[in-house]
Each structure stands twice: as structure tokens, then as C-alpha cells.
Amino acid sequence: MRYLETVVTLTYEPSRCTGCQMCVKVCPHAVFDFADKRAVLADRGACMECGACARNCEAQAIQVRAGVGCAAAIITGALTGTEPSCGCSSEGGCC
């Protein structure tokens, strides 16, 4: 299944890549591939903006506005004026 691809915020600067392959390993949607000693942006449209690649890129070659793709979290965030965050929003008694 594919989602809305044109709004993805992921950017990648190949010139900074050191070839550690961390992004290839952490991406759950195979957005990155590895070829010629560098990461390649193979399927940008599949990005779900979880932020794992950017967070684990020591060379800071990857940037993305990371967050949860969750409507309930966005609604809760809008109502409470906080960043969208999932987990306890609808179940009560988190702690």
C-alpha cells in the first residue's frame, strides 16, 4: 500500500554520505538503497517520516520532519496546543 507521496519532507544530500548504511538498515519501507559505496534515495514516496534514518545518520546527510502519521494525535495536538504525539491519547490513565 502506498500513501500520499508528494508531501514527503525527506531530503538527502549524497555528498555528505559516508557509506555507513545505517539508513538502509533502519528504514522499514526500503526508502534507501546502497550502491557504489553510498546510500541512494530509492523510493522517497514510501517515506512515512518516522525519522529513524535522519536520527541515525552521523554525517547528517538526511533531514526529515519526523512525526506520527496519526489523525487522532493531530486532533489531540491541535486541541491541546502540543506536538502530535500518539500512545495515550484515547485510552485514559497512561500513568
Partner: peptide, 13 residues
């Protein structure tokens, strides 16, 4: 979308 495994924040917004 919150239960799915492939939706992005930008897409849901």
C-alpha cells in the same frame, strides 16, 4: 491512519 504502518505526518495533515 494512527494504527497503520505507512502513513506520514505530512500526508495525514
Amino acid at each position: 491512519t494512527g494504527a497503520s504502518t505507512f502513513t506520514s505526518l505530512s500526508g495525514v495533515m
